[in-house]
């Protein structure tokens, strides 16, 4: 047997152990066509046999914003500063929607793809990556909606929109938020595959996270005493920066931005390596 092992250099081999550091992203890249097809599948499926089709991508944030404006602005009376409530809630809703959808969607990677995973080998990371890509594409449509609102408000004389150079950071913000969602989703995909009942805590967790992120309120209405809760949340500076760039109102420091970026990188690495390490062991219990 030993002679044979030396005789050939093998292209691949499978042993009982999955190496922590054996993260083969080049292999994932080799499957980019599959990823593109999965994104396409996602789109084709979302809008088949639906009444309004792709309009839902727009209606969802619109209806949410309508509710928020009605409840938080009119009834509760949360001040959104000089920013019109509609724009304030629209920015928050779109950005939060991205995080929420990415996190929730990728957290069931193993359970929703159990059938496929048990029948064919391909780099498992393709599935969550495809999901994130699909969500980012969907987001473009929502950004168009946001742009339309910005243009509409900029023609009105009673409000002024202070859009500034920070708006150029927009793609970066979206990517950071998507990566945070993906990292959380990857970690939870492993957890929910092992302990199914923990799937129930994902929605609860998302709700708690939403309230410690400045989605429905601006940072500056929070009492200074409890601001640390928002400060440890790496998403907070992203939301504030997003609003500052587009609407001219939001508070963040460069230290907060660096903290947010470092957190994102760490979370992503933890998520990727945990996913990679556990993906094979999980096949036995799926």
């Amino acid at each position: 047997m030993d002679i044979k092992e030396k005789q050939f250099d093998w292209d691949w081999q499978t042993t009982s152990k999955t190496n922590w550091w054996q993260l083969d992203l080049r292999e994932v890249w080799g499957y980019r066509n599959l990823l593109a097809r999965l994104v396409r599948r996602d789109f084709l499926l979302s809008y088949q046999q639906t009444l309004l089709g792709p309009l839902w991508t727009l209606l969802q944030p619109l209806l949410t914003v309508f509710t928020y404006v009605l409840v938080f602005s009119k009834l509760v009376g949360i001040s959104t500063g000089t920013v019109p409530p509609v724009l304030f809630y629209l920015t928050g809703t779109i950005l939060w929607g991205l995080f929420n959808d990415v996190f929730t969607g990728t957290s069931t990677t193993f359970t929703t793809n159990a059938d496929l995973f048990s029948k064919v080998y391909f780099p498992r990371l393709v599935m969550p990556f495809a999901f994130v890509s699909a969500q980012l594409l969907r987001l473009l449509v929502q950004l168009a909606l946001l742009a339309a609102f910005l243009i509409f408000y900029s023609f009105r004389t009673d409000v002024t929109i202070h859009m500034n150079a920070w708006a150029l950071a927009l793609p970066g913000i979206l990517i950071v938020v998507a990566i945070l969602g993906l990292a959380g989703g990857l970690i939870f995909s492993v957890i929910t595959a092992k302990y199914r009942d923990l799937m129930n805590i994902v929605p609860i967790l998302m709700r708690i996270l939403m309230y410690v992120t400045p989605v429905i309120y601006p940072m500056n209405i929070i009492p200074v005493k409890v601001r640390w809760i928002l400060a440890i949340n790496p998403m907070t500076p992203m939301f504030e920066l997003f609003r500052y760039g587009l609407l001219g109102e939001g508070s963040f420091t460069s230290a907060q931005l660096v903290y947010s970026l470092v957190c994102t990188v760490v979370c992503l690495l933890v998520g990727l390596f945990l996913f990679n390490k556990q993906k094979d062991a999980l096949m036995d219990i799926l």
């Binding site: 092992e5 691949w12 081999q13 042993t15 062991a281």
Partner: peptide, 17 residues
């Protein structure tokens, strides 16, 4: 399934070209 790399063996190795 082990040869297809879908599941991992408990012991042993599969090599392929």
């Amino acid at each position: 399934k082990i040869i297809s790399r879908i599941i991992r063996p408990t012991h042993g190795t599969v090599r392929g070209r």
